[in-house]
Amino acid sequence: MMDESKVGLTSKQKAGNFIGSFGLIIILLVIFGLFSFLIPGVYFTWVNLRDMIRFSSFVGIGAIGMTFCIMTGNFDISVGSMLALAGVLGASLAPRISGVGGVIVTIIVALFLGFINGVFVTKLKIPAFITTLGMLFVFRAIAYIYTNNTPQYIQDRFWISIGNKTFLGLPIPIYIMAVCYGIAYLLLKKSPVGRYIIAVGTNSRAATLSGINVDNIKILVFTLIGLFVGIAAVINASMLGAANPGMMGDGWEFQVITAVVLGGTALSGGSGSLGGSLLAALIIIFLKTGMSNAQVNSYWQQVATGLVLIFAVSLNKLKFWLIGQTQ
């Protein structure tokens, strides 16, 4: 009787599942192999590898919150500006309230901004992207105005060490990223909240009938984005030694969204993968570093990032089409 409910997979479905499971690893290996071959002695070195992973933590941590958000079928396009606003506020206060205080302020500010986004999105009943598009400009403008467009340098040794020191041979951001992914994994897989997030994304009407408060889950998800953006802001400001109201996080939302989409999270919500987002963040940085190392014109790099996003969405479409649940 067991067999009755087991559906035999067609070759198409198998291909779709294969793309879902191994596609990213193959892409990562191909990129890594290609650049190792093209620029021998530069790309495939321990130092370069370590640095690439260190840089990928910036995109990777941001991608966590965005993965949750897109899983619920929403979208936050304001993360880059949120990063800058939280960063400059924290950095500007650090001299007065110590580095630790600055770090905490940065994270709390981002958390709060995310919460505001969530409230607006749920209460206005308007697609999240348009609300957060407005916020993208508001946050950035406030960052400019607050700092009078001057970079906020970070002198505090504790804060500087977060992004630049190593521990047991590995850069600290890698540990932070690992902890963030660990917590996110527990949240998604081992706590009721994770179930609620997926339920809201896969079928919000069914979730409502199951007694889940859909609005609260959405607000929570936007707040989580804030949390991880705050952590990313701390690392980013530390690596650069300053929080710059104009440059900090400019175009970052694009990288983060690309990572999540490339990681296999469906834009329509419901299914998503943290591991996929992490791998995709690595792919983006491996590709970017590789192109830089190979001295590819930076404008070509920009074109490439756009193409990668379109490729990622198309790949997702292909995957779901093969598995047979067209959206």
Binding site: R195, I198, A199, G201, R205, A206, A207, L209, G270
Partner: peptide, 15 residues
């Protein structure tokens, strides 16, 4: 409005 499509049998029962 019944099934949570992307979730498992177990998760559908326990939601």
């Amino acid at each position: 409005e019944g099934l949570l499509n992307d979730m498992s049998v177990l998760q559908n029962i326990s939601i």
